[in-house]
Design a binder for these strands. Structure first.
Lengths: 329, 329
DNA sequence: ATTTAACATGTAAACGTTTACGGTTAATTA
DNA sequence: TAATTAACCGTAAACGTTTACATGTTAAAT
């Protein structure tokens, strides 16, 4: 049975559509008696107003699209949680889509979000190419990039200083005496590129040249440990592994266990994201905190501001990474 | 600037609204030439059809509401991931809401989902009381409960055998010689009640009576370790802790570390959910696998079936829990 | 050459809201 | 008492789609 409509409410208490609408929206032009009648009728038949009709009329849906790689990654769970916290207080809702690091899925998800006429969009772009962003600009939807920016395009974004992340990792590992470092990286996105640059540059500054075979890129949706195995089977003997994110680091930890290598005795491991669990892994993981939750908060705040003043300038927020030393290095 | 409409497309290539609509929807009554014209125009102005208008017309939104406690809990991330996998193939999207274990927030989220006219709903109810479900029934929205059912009401649900979960835990701990077991439980929901019953019953069958002070309930959004501390500070000296879920178990692990207690030497810990990380915690956590991902899959399948044949009977799926022995016990 | 069918397109109503505008009644003022 | 005003309420248009129905055109069939 189709849900109750305003017409049903109006009919039930013998008033017009307009009056019913006014009563339910607390307009002043309704007598207290009528208002009470309407509210009672609405209550009785369990009326809930259709956001579809409202949205069609008003041009806003009170929904913000959030497009990430996958919610299974606790990093994004943290980010989304931050977004949710901010949006909730302004009665905005989240329409969640995942790209699984695939360009096609990202494009399709974007279509869905545009079709749903989301009021704004928060996304972690899969690639460092501008297509996606250009599409949003063409459709003039307010949006913020989160976690990853796109080079050479003026947009709002909230990221951490990824070059510094790579640099910090390199410095920390060098301090610990590691020169043979395997870099398990993500693919295509700008954060990955920047972290790699920061890493390589810092290594080079210390006179160490990392050859390309020490840089492994994990294909989308593949367990990082296979990239590790690949390296080991190629005869590489790293004394440390630096991973793009903690998720991968955890997979590496598990892979090393399989191969019988002890951390940190035989090999050091470090990640990025400072996920909650890294505190109690075996061993506790050295990682870099990039303020996951805060990223969500800030990106949501930017979207809200954009909705309030549509002409506003783009905002770029670059958060500072912090090294979290634990026992895996 | 407002998004392009069908009218814009029609005007741009000099056809009527109807023709434009037909062309874009691959109706047969349009000449190939006209179709091409329309598609080109739509492409050029970046037209995307409004789901709002479509939904208003058709009565379906292609959106499924998902209402969980919080996506920060990897258990629900697993569940949502399963749901997403199934829905994606049928072009349904997810509108995600969180209750944070609060009845009020759950009620508010439900209002939002009904307003958005979701085609169906998958939810993990906060309480074992029937209000929420009754509301959905009154509004005649197809729904499935996931992870937790509600006693005494005929609905569709996908859960694991929670009584058995409690029983399995009790048996496993007894086998290891633990009789002084602290139960760190969740509050109010039926799964929690059932696990407790299974636990107590099994203990009793072995002649062991657990007094109420050994059962701690963790308030919503509070770290489980405080419940542990409370117990310890009351002078309780448990030889094992059984937690409602792995999330709590991880918090307990961390709390025990703070208090300088070694696991499993001084005290054993076990959880439920078999989260990925439990494999590499220190120590690896003994837990019970309740098929998180599968729960998502099945619940999504049920919703899809309900949408196809609205008259269908309710489906109850009870998945079997499996003990995963590791080193924490 | 006329009828018929097939095809292509347009017109208008409907979905569920909100609000501008106009109308009715009762209360206030002169 | 008549005029003005205030309070309340209804009518109808609009938002962006889809489709039933009507209309017009062309080709095929007689």
């Amino acid at each position: 049975m189709a849900p109750a409509t305003l017409k049903d409410v109006a009919k039930r208490c013998g008033v017009s559509l307009a009056t019913a609408s006014r009563a339910l929206n607390n307009r002043s032009e309704v007598s207290p008696i009528t208002r009470a009648k309407v509210l009672k009728a609405a209550e009785e038949i369990g009326y809930v107003a259709s956001s579809l009709a409202k949205g069609l009329w008003s041009g806003e849906t009170k929904v913000i699209g959030v497009l990430i790689t996958t919610i299974e990654n606790p990093f994004y769970a943290n980010v989304v949680s931050g977004i949710e916290k901010v949006l909730k207080d302004h009665s905005y809702n989240i329409l969640l889509c995942s790209s699984y690091e695939e360009v096609d899925q990202e494009w399709a998800a974007l279509t869905v979000l545009l079709e749903q006429r989301v009021d704004g969009l928060i996304l972690a772009p899969v690639q460092s190419k501008p297509e996606v962003v250009e599409r949003l600009q063409k459709n003039s939807v307010p949006f913020v990039l989160v976690g990853r920016s796109i080079p050479g395009i003026d947009t709002s974004y909230v990221v951490c200083d990824d070059f510094k992340v790579g640099a910090m990792a390199a410095e920390h590992l060098l301090e610990q005496g590691h020169e043979k470092v395997l870099f398990i990286n993500s693919s295509r996105n700008y954060s990955a590129e920047q972290r790699l640059q920061g890493f390589l540059t810092t290594m080079q500054q210390h006179g160490i040249n990392i050859s390309p075979k020490w840089i492994k890129t994990v294909p989308a949706n593949q367990n990082a440990k296979y990239s590790l195995f690949e390296a080991l089977d190629q005869g590489l003997e790293p004394s440390a592994v630096f991973c793009f994110c903690d998720c991968m680091a955890l997979e590496i930890l598990s892979g090393l266990k399989e191969r019988g290598l002890k951390v940190p005795a035989d090999i050091a491991v470090m990640g990025v994201d400072n996920l909650n669990v890294t505190e109690i892994t075996d061993p506790p993981l050295t990682t870099i905190d990039i303020q996951n939750y805060e990223m969500g908060i800030r990106s949501a705040e930017i979207i809200l501001k954009k909705l309030q003043e549509p002409g506003a300038k783009h905002e770029q927020i670059i958060l500072s990474p912090k090294l979290v030393k634990r026992n895996s290095t």
